[in-house]
């Protein structure tokens, strides 16, 4: 297909919608921000899009727990529409708060994984506080259409509740063996490690998850915050300071748009 259409969900407290829309546009999609009330009023509205992104922020203030209230709203009003969206072969990306929402709404790791929101969740950082810092991410699965399996990427996190936990060793093994882990936190050489390499204490350094289709992904770091060279924390030290560096910035959005162009 030629024109990939992406929708960025808005809701009370969502606040990374503008830069996410911009990142999708840079990747070649026609992107639009839409308030959840419009989708609840008109469930067919989603049909006109190919990529749904639930961006970062503090939906409903993260009251009760991060992403919980929005997840509850989705479960009761939009679950079927989003399920159909995925079954149609389209893509869903949850970033930071959006990742928390996808997990708590039961969309990640999703049907068929053996896991549901009862065995995986995202909770308070071990440090007990919000942190903004850059982390290296190592892709773990070839199934997920958003990532290049062998490309380590560098992105910022900005969250207080990003620790992925499972209810049992068994559930964790299913996640790992089943290829549901999209990214792990690593150091610049690719090795896992304690804080700050793993910034929140996630089990097995899990930074992002995908589902059985590989077309749904959620991650705590913010890919939309690194789509320009000057967003890199030490761009002034890099040899091509001030110049574009397509190798690293914008990968996830480029992959998403290209996948839809080629496969839909």
């Amino acid at each position: 297909m030629d024109q990939v259409k992406a929708v960025v969900l808005r809701a009370a407290g969502i606040n990374c919608d503008m830069e996410t829309e911009n990142a999708l546009r840079l990747a070649g999609a026609q992107a639009q921000r839409l308030h959840i009330n419009r989708l609840v009023e008109n469930k067919n509205l989603l049909d006109g899009f190919h990529i749904l992104v639930i961006p970062g922020g503090f939906s409903y203030g993260d009251d009760v727990a991060a992403g919980k209230i929005l997840a509850n709203q989705i479960k009761h009003h939009l679950y079927e529409s989003i399920r159909k969206f995925i079954d149609d072969g389209k893509l869903v990306l949850g970033i930071c708060n959006g990742f928390q929402v996808l997990v708590k709404a039961g969309l990640l790791p999703g049907n068929g994984s053996g896991n549901s929101q009862k065995d995986v969740t995202i909770t308070n950082n071990d440090s007990g506080k919000f942190e903004d810092r850059w982390v290296y991410l190592q892709p773990q699965t070839g199934r997920c259409v958003f990532i290049n399996k062998d490309q380590r990427i560098y992105l910022p996190i900005a969250h207080g509740e990003g620790k992925v936990v499972t209810d049992s060793v068994e559930s964790l093994r299913q996640l790992q063996d089943g290829g549901f882990v999209a990214f792990k936190y690593v150091d610049k050489d690719g090795n896992e490690g304690p804080f700050p390499v793993n910034p929140n204490g996630s089990v097995c350094s899990i930074a992002g998850l995908t589902d059985t289709t590989g077309r749904v992904m959620g991650l705590m770091p913010h890919p939309e915050r690194f789509v320009y060279h000057t967003q890199h924390p030490h761009w002034t030290r890099l040899p091509n300071a001030g110049q574009g560096d397509p190798d690293v910035s914008g990968t996830i959005f480029n992959n998403a748009v290209n996948y839809m162009k080629q496969n839909f």
Partner: peptide, 23 residues
Amino acid sequence: VIRQYDHEVQGGSVIKPLAGIEN
């Protein structure tokens, strides 16, 4: 203090409050 603030939201960050090879 600085890390507890989101200093990159809105995607406009060019020079951040923390600089250098280890940020």
